[in-house]
Nucleic acid binder design. Structure first.
Lengths: 108, 108
DNA sequence: TTTATATATCGCAATATTACGATTAATATT
DNA sequence: AATATTAATCGTAATATTGCGATATATAAA
C-alpha cells in the first residue's frame, strides 16, 4: 500500500484504521456475513460458499482473526470460526463520534 | 491491491467494502476525527494539522468524498469539507447485523 | 491584467494487497 | 502404518495504494 507514516498517528487511530482495513474487502465482508448467518459456528465450508481458493479464504480468515474480528477454534481437522463481538463497539463508537451533531449545521 | 473478483459479490457487499476501505487508513481516520471536532466546517488547514503533503491530503479527501463519507463546498479559493452523515447508518447496520445474538453461543 | 492563494491532478517510485498453485502440518480414518 | 481430510503457509505474478514534487486550475487581491 505504499509508504504509510505509521509513526505519525496515535495508536488508537492506527487501531481503528487496521480494523476498518480488515473490513475493506468484499471477500471479508462476505465471510463475516456468512458466519453471522449460521446459528452454529460453521467452519471451512466458507470455501465452498465463496468463489475463492482455499488458500485465499484462509488468508482472509487470518486477517480477520489478526485484528480480532473473528476467533477460531480447532475441532479435529477442521477449524470453527465465529464472530468475536468485543471489538465491534470500538467501530460503533468511532462512527458515532464522527456523527456528532456539531457537523450537521455546516455544508448546508 | 491485486486481483479482486469484483463480479462475484453483491453490490451491497461491494459498497460496504468500499466504505470500510476508505476508513482503512490512519490519515483518513485522522481527517474525519479532525473535521468532526470542528464546530464550523473548517477546510484546508487539515494540511497543517497532519504530517502529509498538500497533494496527499487532497487525495485522501477525494477518496473520502468519492464514497460519500464527506462532502465539500467551494467558498472562494478554499474548499470546506464536512462529514456527510447519510452513509454512516449503512456501516452501523452492518456491524449490528454481524453482532447478532446467534453467534454468541458458539466458540465458547 | 498581474500576482497571490488554495486545491486538484499528473507522473513516478516505493510498497502493500490479492489470488492461486503447490506444499506443509496436523488430526482422522482405514 | 498408510492414507485421507482439513487448514495454514510459501512463493510468485498481477495489481492497487501511498506519498510527494511538480504542475494545473480557479478564484481573490492588488
Amino acid at each position: 500500500m505504499g509508504i504509510t507514516k505509521t509513526e505519525s498517528y496515535t495508536t488508537q487511530t492506527l487501531h481503528l484504521a487496521d480494523l476498518f482495513k480488515a473490513l475493506g474487502h468484499p471477500a471479508r465482508i462476505a465471510i463475516l456475513q456468512y458466519i453471522s448467518n449460521q446459528t452454529s459456528c460453521i467452519c471451512g465450508d466458507i470455501v465452498t460458499e465463496l468463489p475463492l481458493s482455499q488458500a485465499s479464504i484462509s488468508r482472509h480468515l487470518q486477517e480477520l482473526k489478526a485484528v480480532g474480528l473473528i476467533k477460531g477454534e480447532i475441532s479435529g481437522t477442521s477449524v470453527c470460526y465465529c464472530i468475536n463481538p468485543i471489538v465491534l463497539p470500538i467501530l460503533i463508537d468511532f462512527i458515532n463520534q464522527i456523527h456528532s451533531p456539531s457537523n450537521q449545521t455546516c455544508c448546508s
